[in-house]
Design a protein around this nucleic acid. Sequence first.
DNA 1: AAGTGTGACTTGTACGGTCAGGTGGTGGAA
DNA 2: TTCCACCACCTGACCGTACAAGTCACACTT
Lengths: 248, 248
Amino acid sequence: MVESALHLTIATELRGRIRAGELPVGGPMPSESELCREFSASRGPVRQALAALRAEGLIGGGQGRRAVVLDTVAAQPFATLLSFSRWAEMIGRTPGQVTQEIGVGRPGPAVAAALNLDAGDDVVALVRLRLLDGEPAMVERTSFVTSVGRALLDVDLDTVSIYAHLAEAGADLHTARHTLDAVAADPRDAALLGVAEGSPLLRERRLAMTSTGEPLEWSDDRYRPDVASVTITNTRSAHAAMVRHLDD
Amino acid sequence: MVESALHLTIATELRGRIRAGELPVGGPMPSESELCREFSASRGPVRQALAALRAEGLIGGGQGRRAVVLDTVAAQPFATLLSFSRWAEMIGRTPGQVTQEIGVGRPGPAVAAALNLDAGDDVVALVRLRLLDGEPAMVERTSFVTSVGRALLDVDLDTVSIYAHLAEAGADLHTARHTLDAVAADPRDAALLGVAEGSPLLRERRLAMTSTGEPLEWSDDRYRPDVASVTITNTRSAHAAMVRHLDD
DNA sequence: AAGTGTGACTTGTACGGTCAGGTGGTGGAA
DNA sequence: TTCCACCACCTGACCGTACAAGTCACACTT
């Protein structure tokens, strides 16, 4: 087993203590020097770990004061925000999917612009109904650039997680941009999700890129708003952290 | 006047170059050592600045490779996400507001739970229609804890920015949690925003807290989805950054 | 021509120290 | 008893150094 970096070890350990209630919400964190002694680290890694927790919205506080525990649940890691399946598993639900369409073809102008494609380029387009515990939760309309999408044409998309498959195929998913708004359910959305036509849906449009900014995937996902919503935490110093969660 | 911190200076300067196109999208950032020389800094502040840009979704990249410019527009700073007025000013629009109701009273159970109030506590409740360039854009239903809200009862809310006023009054706004979903416009929303009853609205429920986690404000904001949406960037390493923006 | 090293360059991680500036408790003065 | 000055402690910021690990291009070998 490769030991991971010290600052990651510290962050993981502190996250665990916060989640377990060992460090209670509203209470102070240990001081930096205490953490240095405990983990035999210099202040660098300790501060790096605290900065991470701060960015996740777990702790707050200011100069001269000890950091304060704000919450017990952190924002979700990268993969969870990208993959419906991993998200479902993380929140303890069973993901499912029913593929409606898949094929190679010319993209519409909006998709071509989002993926920064040239005039002649094709995409692999996919429409799926996503389920949570067997109930309709989301309609997904995804377009992949062909270099990535080709790997999908041979697999059974109703059983395999796309992102797990793409990761194995070596796709370098690194950054994603999510745009959230509300739309009315069109007739097809309504039929698939089991809601009335025109009823409000939470739409997440997502562009996934490599570490160098090359677009890989563009998706238009429409959630039943009674099933899922999105929470973001932001702090004066740090920036925002996002979490998609279930409505109970 | 104290000059601001070096890492903030570097980050601001680099943001400016990216926005100006001096560092083109898709191109490499200067190496850390180049930045050290240019700003007469050690690697610490330089890396802190780059980490900030990374968290804002402006740059990406990995070990051994130079960072890559991903986008020209950064996520918004804290105040912009909290204050409709500052957001409007940042995107070059004129904010406006028409107060519908304001008063002190007993909160509903949902509000009391969100603000973590005891049974007998009152809140200052406020309903406003918010405008962009004179056009209806959002309906805001906000509840303040009385210690904070009292300061609002004496001012003209149609002309003063609440957050500017609260900041002057010494309120320590530090962290905010935003939950996004979609709702159908109720009759009152529809009348105020000038949309059909039942049409989809983007709802942002927001809890603002002090640095020690004490709730200060709970708000239910409903946007016309043709006017505003919310974008979030997240990266494998860094966490998410959020930006609220205008739909053109 | 294609594959393979090798080495320069770059970022990631971590150490140590230093100073500035904010916080909060304590003890003495009024 | 109340108030205030002071001080110990803490976090924020920064420097310089060192080594590990990843990337890329170029020269060399096959």
